[in-house]
Simulated scan of single mutants.
Amino acid sequence: MKLVVCAYHNVGYRCIEELLRQGAEISLIFTHEDSPTEQIWFSSVRELAEANRIPYLTSSINEPENIEKVRKIAPDFLLSFYYRNMIKPELLELPARGALNLHGSWLPKYRGRVPVNWAVINGETETGATLHYMVAKPDAGDIVDQEKVAIAFTDTAHDVFGKVNEAAVTVLRRAWPRLVDGSADRIPMDLAAGSYFGGRKPEDGRIDWTKSSVQIYNLIRGVTHPYPGAFTELNSMKLLIWSAWPVAGSGQPGQVVSLKPLCIGTGDGLLELRRVQFEGGQEQEATGCSLSESNRFA
Rank of each mutant, 00 (worst) to 15 (best):
A167T: 06
V160L: 12
D155M: 06
D159R: 01
A152L: 06
H158K: 02
E147D: 00
F161Y: 14
A140S: 09
A152T: 05
M134R: 11
V160H: 14
A157V: 02
T130K: 14
E147W: 01
V160S: 12
A157H: 00
Q146A: 05
H158C: 06
G162W: 07
K148A: 04
F153N: 14
H132L: 02
H132W: 02
K163W: 06
A136D: 14
D159Q: 02
K148F: 08
D159P: 01
V160E: 12
T156W: 03
D139K: 05
A140Y: 08
A157L: 01
D145L: 10
D142P: 05
A150V: 15
K137G: 10
H158P: 03
H132N: 00
K137C: 11
A167C: 06
D159G: 01
A150Q: 14
V149S: 15
V144C: 06
N165Q: 14
T156D: 01
T130Y: 15
F153T: 15
N165F: 11
P138A: 04
E147T: 02
A136R: 15
M134C: 09
E166W: 08
A136E: 15
V160Q: 14
A167N: 04
T156C: 05
D139Y: 03
K148W: 07
T130N: 13
K163H: 09
T130H: 13
E166G: 10
T130P: 14
V164A: 05
K148T: 10
D139R: 03
Y133I: 10
A140P: 10
F161Q: 09
H158L: 05
M134Q: 11
K148I: 07
A150I: 15
D139V: 02
F161T: 08
A150K: 12
V135A: 09
Y133R: 13
V160W: 12
Q146Y: 12
T130V: 12
H158Q: 06
D159H: 02
T130C: 13
Y133K: 10
K163G: 02
T154S: 09
A152E: 11
I143P: 00
A152V: 04
K163Q: 10
I151D: 02
N165P: 11
V135W: 07
D155Y: 04
V149E: 15
G141K: 00
V135D: 05
A136L: 12
A157D: 00
G162F: 08
N165K: 10
E147C: 00
A157I: 03
T130R: 14
T154P: 03
P138D: 03
D145N: 09
A157P: 00
D142C: 09
